[in-house]
Structures are given as C-alpha cells and as structure tokens.
Amino acid sequence: MHRAAQSTTRHPALGLAVTGLILAGISHPAAATWIAAALGEPARRPLDVARLLALSLQHVILAGAGLGLVAVLGVGLGILVTRRVASPWRPLVDAVAAGAQAVPPVVVVALALPVLGFGGPPTLLALVAYGIMPVLRGTVGGIEGVASDIREAGRAVGLTNFQILMRIELPLAGPAIVETLRTALVLAVATVAVGALAGATTLGTPIVAGLQNQNTVPMLQGAAATAALAFLGEAALLALVSAWRAIRP
C-alpha cells in the first residue's frame, strides 16, 4: 500500500522528461514533415536523423562545457564572496554581476564575434558572462540563508571554517544552488542556440537558416529538438539531484 502510494506521487522530473520526449518526437523528420504539411507548408527536405543527432551532440557539448564553467565559477565565487575576508569586495562583485546581466546573451555573442571569431568561443563567453550572475546570487543567497546560530553551533562544536562550509553551509544551501543551476542549464541551452548566429553549428543552425530561407521543416525540427534538450536536461538534473539525495544519508 505504502509503496503504491509513493509511486503515485509523481517526481517533478517526470513531467519535464515526458514533455522533452514529446518534443524530441516532433523533431523526428517524419513527424515534422507531417506537422508542416498540416500547417500547409510546402514539404521540403527535412534534416535526417543522423544530422539531427550530430547537431544535438554539438549542442550538448557546448552547453555542457558552458554550464560546467558557469557552475564552477558561479558557485566558487559565491563561496569566496561570502567569506569574512571578502566582505569589502561584496559591493564590487554585486555591481559587476548586475552590470553583466544588463547585456543580453545575443549582444554578448555579437560583441565577442570580432574578438573571438566565428564559432563556439563567442557563444561560450556569452554563456559564462550571462550565466555566472544568477548562480553567484543563488549561491550567496543560499549560504546567507543559513541561520547564524547553526553556524555558531558548528563553531562551538569545534569545526574549522572549512568544515563549517563543507558540512553546514553547502548542504543547507544545496537546494538554492540546484535551483540556480536549473536556471543556468536552461540559459545554456538557449544561448547555445543563439550561438548559431555566430556560426556555431548547433540545433540553432537549422532554425536560423530556416527563418532566413522560409524553410519550415528543418526550422520546426531544430526548434523542437532545442526545446526537447532543455526539458530533458532539466529532468536529468532533477533526477540526478534526487538520486544523490537518496544515496546520501
């Protein structure tokens, strides 16, 4: 009975995963051609599955690299900024982070283009420039949300500052950090799609080319596949987190 009741309370990752799989199905050449036909678009040659998978792989690699950089830099800076030593730097970090947020990712990609050339690098730069701030703020908010008496209790028990960070602050700030990483993941998938404008070969490429040439089928495929990646990525992140929670006592 208990087991059955548990399985009926759905995991939040499930809805995301189902949405992602439906979108992935839409990006299949046959499905996309059928939808385009239903919309009255002329049936043009769709992207075949191999090409779609290759683009998806490129997309995942770029977004994954960017997300990794954002996570390491954002969480790392968030930890640094909340140390006692760094408190004079706080206004500066806040100001820089707020300033970086005022530049939309497309504009960062565009501005980095003359400096870094066509392809992946401007996209990665845009991702890092735009993604760090939410992660940094989320980490800072999570760590500062830890009640100070818990921290004091840790100190009273004789924990070092590092142990307080690892055993008290980070575990308690965990949910907030995961929440910001979800935002960063969605941002990463979207920014890599925009990177197609700077010549990075991603799932954004068929969308941008399709919009320019009025070629609806590949455009639909790219759009559905990009959205599918975002949903599936979020589902995977949530599943990973809950699996990790289940392992850890």
Binding site: A190, L220, G222, A223, A224, T226, A227, A230
Partner: peptide, 11 residues
C-alpha cells in the same frame, strides 16, 4: 521559460 527563445520564435 524552458523553451529557448530562438526555438519559440521558429515555432
């Protein structure tokens, strides 16, 4: 929010 803007525009 999860749908990338480029994809939503295309759709």
């Amino acid at each position: 929010q999860v749908v990338p803007a480029v994809a939503l525009l295309g759709g």
